[in-house]
Computed example of a mutant assay.
Amino acid sequence: MNLEKRDIIIKEIQYWRKSRLLPEQYCDFLTNLYDDEDANKDNNPISLRNLQQGSIKIWLFSFGIISLIFLISLYFSVFPWPLQLATALSVLIICYGYSAVYKDRNNVISLILAGLGSVLTLGFGLWLIDLHDLDPQLWRPILIGCCGLLWCILGFLLRIGLLQYCGFAFWALLYAGFFGGRSPEASIFELEFLWLPLCVLMVWLCWLLHHKVRGVASVYFAVGVSLWIMPELDALLLRQDYPQWISLMLILKIAAGLALLFGFRKKWITWVAT
């Protein structure tokens, strides 16, 4: 194909991607169909082909990044706490920042950087709590809440549904821990009352926002479906001395949930796919 025509088509595909006129997977397919090896080299500079044919600058840059990671890992504990905090924030800003930069260029690299930043967020937080002998009963819930809020926001901004779902999962964990401490002897009916309204709320938000805000309906629906069985999981995993029939109730709850999904499949699939 003529190079000029190919460039015009690729620019048009990128415009469709940014304007969200076509789904992400269709844009990826069309880009791979019309793009040649040179364009792929520019979009993915760390592929095996480009590493084999790349300049010495790429290898020196890789060596510098790996060395920096090892230096931070080895000497992080001896840094003064302001430098520790600044180092952690700098690493996280770099990971999430480049994830946003590569979002439209290379989705795989963007996801890897976002995942790395999320793991480091939790890892640095736990490390700092341990290094400074902070009260884990206080600071771990604060860390979980901050991670959940950060991942919900970044998952929405970067359109990474899994990251947003993990943020809601951390908030659910914090919610379960709070009420587990306040009401350790709660009955199964009280647990149903704690969790099922949240399930209904998330499914309702999925229906309400599926035409108005892109990238949230599928996440809210997945969270709502997960909350459907949280009362039984709360009783089995986080509380003591619950009867064995809770396991049977969990199985019946899953069966009922699948029946509801099947019965209303035309509605919720439309919400999720929009």
Rank of each mutant, 00 (worst) to 15 (best):
G125M: 12
L71Y: 10
W195Y: 03
I66P: 02
L260W: 14
K57R: 15
E190Q: 14
G257R: 03
L120T: 00
I93P: 05
D38E: 15
K5H: 13
A259C: 10
D135Y: 15
G181P: 01
S218I: 02
M1H: 11
A259Y: 11
I229D: 03
L236C: 06
I65W: 07
G97P: 01
Y175W: 14
W195S: 01
K41F: 12
L116R: 02
I66N: 02
A172C: 11
L201C: 04
D7R: 11
T87I: 02
L162Y: 15
I93M: 14
C166G: 12
N2S: 03
D36V: 11
V213K: 06
F168K: 10
I10S: 04
R265A: 13
L198P: 06
G161S: 07
I160W: 13
S99G: 13
Q14L: 12
E4A: 12
L149R: 08
L83H: 08
L30D: 03
I144Q: 04
F70M: 06
L154K: 00
N2E: 05
L205P: 01
D104E: 11
R140F: 15
I142K: 11
L209V: 08
A86K: 04
I58Q: 06
P80R: 01
I94E: 02
S55C: 07
D7G: 09
L138M: 08
I142F: 04
R140I: 15
F170Y: 11
I142V: 15
F76P: 07
I13C: 01
H132P: 06
V91M: 03
R49M: 08
I69N: 00
P82L: 01
L33H: 14
Q164V: 07
L126K: 09
A256C: 04
V119W: 06
W16G: 01
F29W: 08
E24S: 10
I10P: 04
Q14R: 07
L174K: 11
L196M: 14
G97F: 01
A217H: 02
W271Y: 06
L261Y: 05
G180K: 01
I112H: 01
L122I: 15
Y34W: 13
M249W: 12
W195A: 00
R49H: 05
L134G: 02
D234K: 00
I251E: 07
E232S: 12
I160V: 13
E12K: 06
L198R: 06
S62V: 13
M249H: 12
Y102W: 07
L174E: 04
